[in-house]
Design a protein around this nucleic acid. Sequence first.
DNA 1: CGAATGATCGGCT
DNA 2: GCCGATCATTCGA
Length: 202
Amino acid sequence: MQKLTASFYTREDVVQIAKDLLGKYLVTRFDGQITAGKIVETEAYRGPDDKACHAWMNRRTNRTEIMFAEGGHAYVYLCYGIHHLFNIVSGKKDMAHAILIRAVEPVENVELMLKRRNLTKITPRLTAGPGSLTQALGIRTEHTGQSLVADDSPIWLEDRGEEVLEENIIASPRVGIGYAEECALWDWRFRMRGAKWASPAK
DNA sequence: CGAATGATCGGCT
DNA sequence: GCCGATCATTCGA
């Protein structure tokens, strides 16, 4: 078990990082309670030339400011008023790249995840979908800007030695970003082949 | 200051 | 499968 360090996040190729994140573990510790899930679906957003990215054309506001930080920070965005979407800021300082975590597989402390989601049975709804997994893991907008690499950080990622082969990665177009025109066609959404916990394929 | 806009989910049919 | 909820952030007046 190895916590991912800054050098993992600060690489230039955000698409490659998005692929590398598959099979890694997302872990949170709030109030001494640990919950963890295996990442099975990600989506890449590349700041300068991606219309779907909030920081497209280096549009810099208070909200997107965190995306310009060095890789290894959390960017939590509230969507549709209800859903907390967890992104990992990547790239070097002033490179507004980010990766959206779309789905995880529940691994540790499933009981607490169920409680947080107000569910009694384990269903794919527990952690499939970007808004669901953040609720299950207890991530909220107030965690935006959190470091994922600091020693005392409540949110971090682990490599547990599971290698994901290129042939087991499925690339597909991103969804929900029709306004981004031609950029919506880029195959920057990645999921693990056969992952039951990924949100359903379109 | 007010209106428009989403990187979605879950319940109901 | 479809439809409605719901609110921070942004931008224009």
